[in-house]
Design a binder for these strands. Structure first.
Lengths: 359, 359
DNA sequence: AATATTTCCGTGTGCGCACACGGTAATTGA
DNA sequence: TCAATTACCGTGTGCGCACACGGAAATATT
């Protein structure tokens, strides 16, 4: 690898081409006023000497600032998940702030489309240089993307994805594939006869595509032929968040001693797995294998106390970090960005969780 | 959070303090020639206005270059592991190269102490601004660290660690804890009666502390009381790398139909797990649960073909990335660095491996 | 042919900082 | 009291780049 100690600068190629630095600058930025002949000459020398602009001097001279905006759900008590992406975002920001990057953070109320719309309008109405958002509502997102496209404002989707909306990039997890991982874990962990119940905590206001993909992945694992023994799968959709209510429902279903097909394993398709863990602990079902999502505090507690066996983490911190870096690399560093930035499907147990909490 | 759009610059505080920029510069860099009175005044205004130097302009003006050196084992056919840290290193380098960072990469022959010493002497004899190395040989490393301390050259340990040698940081995995994770996986995966065999591929020339810590962690899992059923553990040390020889040994031990305690699970304490997988496949022991380390190509192959059940990854790419960033953040960005940077203990299965291979 | 217009290009300045240089005021020495 | 130090401080220049401005040469217009 070459030393770039003595980097070639604009004045070098200007001299080599027998022109002034201003001319070189003009061809570099394609702003005309250069004859084809000299343009070609400069271009060839540029290539020959492999000129790389000094990004530091460049941003210093331009004195341009970049304004990015983010739109996430508020991190309420019920969805602490969204604290982590903000932390990752802040770390990324501290690294790239010297380049004149500033961030405006917008929050909307979880599952409240009008709140989502309101914040989105704020963002669209101002000239941001890039936007990071989680596209939970299709029509609102689609509309906003159209407007942002008019001003060539790049948009990064974070955590969940909508295809073909012209976004710059998606940073998140492959939901279906994570279901397959859960399938493997459940299959290996269940060493007795019995059924598996898939529990979806459904939001009536929408935004459940995640959950469905995860269930589908999970089911496909047990249809793939890779499983160690065949299992019967039931699906249970729960529409409440009240623990009492959940307990009642679970007691009627997996809590009963169904002689035909007793539930020995439960896969919860989102972060509400702690609800089932509460039930499991409260009703003494210590043999139940429990697999779910996300490192919420209550989930972590249950994992450490063996009430949850495996958690799948979506790398929320990393999501925040990478999504901002995507905008930065695209706009400031002029690099190509991968359309889909799938983050690893981390398998978390009591034994390795501490090393996923450092951030 | 405050906007730093209009950052306060040296001239601002100079004006505010009624002095010149040169004076401010002098107190900023502690190079005297300033009366106590004006010094205090500048200092207080510096604090009041929360002056943050523009790192870009600073590095541009200083025109200082930083030379870092790395010392890794060669990535031979037997230890492809070391390709990944180099890749991570290169990514980090491309990000910080604008700051005048250059890298000299030194390689030593695996398990060859004289080669290690030779390369280390090269590094010590030149005035590097920071060193990244994997401290496989205690005495050599200790000696080098002493010399490097004289010139205040920070050293980052990567992958393996030695305590109390005055290194700036350690970037790697908690070996013992990873053994605990392996224990959990083995415990959950083994749903039949039978014994577990721990296989250590020992290097007679030393550098086995990793392996021993992993075994200890693994054993402690089964002594913790958290296991689902008690297991009997055997240890098998293998000193050869020849597949034929390995086959012969395994055939005599885990391959025989020992009626008392048949081996149903094997934990290989390092990346040589593919040797056992070869044996497992060749001799049709498809029920054997196999857990090992590291995403070598041959291990990946076996994982995808269900010959290996779980791999534990040490994040080698991340190790390379983070170790260089540690030096960068310490020397250029003047940030505090964490002494131990433990990387996650990633659990890899056939289903999630693709998302760990992107780099 | 003289003027007006366009095409093309060089020069100068500033971004924020680091540092060399030289100058003035205060202090010392005789 | 006057010169010689010393302590203290301001000014100027350059890092590599972006961009405004203005000027010379080429071409068009009448």
């Amino acid at each position: 690898m070459k030393d770039n100690l003595s980097r070639v600068k604009i004045s070098d190629i200007a001299q080599r081409a027998g022109v002034s630095t201003g001319t070189v600058d003009r061809v570099l930025h394609n702003r005309g006023e250069v004859s084809k002949k000299t343009r070609d000459k400069v271009l060839s020398i540029l290539d020959e000497l492999n000129y790389q602009p000094d990004i530091l001097a460049s941003t210093l001279a331009m004195k341009k600032t970049y304004r990015f905006a983010t739109l996430f759900p508020e991190a309420g008590t019920e969805n602490l998940f969204w604290k982590a992406p903000l932390a990752g975002l802040n770390t990324a920001l501290s690294e790239i702030a010297p380049f004149g990057v500033t961030l405006s953070r917008f929050l909307f109320k979880y599952n409240d489309q009008s709140s989502f719309n309101k914040q989105l309008e704020k963002i669209v109405s101002e000239p941001y240089d890039g936007v990071i958002l989680t596209p939970v509502f299709y029509d609102s997102t689609s509309l906003a993307l159209e407007k942002l496209a008019e001003t060539n404002t790049p948009v990064v989707f974070i955590n969940s994805n909508i295809e073909n909306l012209g976004n710059l990039s998606f940073v998140g997890q492959d939901a279906r594939q994570s279901g397959l991982v859960a399938g493997r874990l459940m299959d290996y962990s269940l060493n007795v006869e019995g059924c598996i119940t898939i529990i979806n905590f459904i939001n009536e206001k929408g935004g459940n595509s995640h959950i469905l993909n995860r269930e589908e992945g999970f089911r496909s694992y047990f249809e793939s032929g890779n499983f160690t023994k065949p299992r019967h799968l039931n699906t249970l959709n729960i529409y409440t968040h009240e623990q009492e209510e959940v307990n009642r429902i679970l007691l009627e279903t997996i809590g009963t001693d169904n002689p035909i097909c007793k539930t020995m394993g439960v896969f919860v398709t989102n972060s509400r797995v702690f609800r089932v863990a509460n039930f499991k602990k409260g009703f003494g079902l210590s043999n139940l294998i429990l697999v779910g999502y996300d490192l919420l505090e209550s989930n972590i507690d249950h994992l450490k106390k063996n009430n949850i066996d495996f958690l799948i983490s979506q790398n929320p911190w990393e999501q925040g970090y990478k999504s901002l870096m995507a905008l930065f690399n695209s706009r400031i560093m002029k690099k190509e960005i991968m359309k889909n930035q799938f983050l690893p499907i981390d398998i978390i147990t009591k034994e390795n969780i501490d090393y996923y909490l450092n951030n």
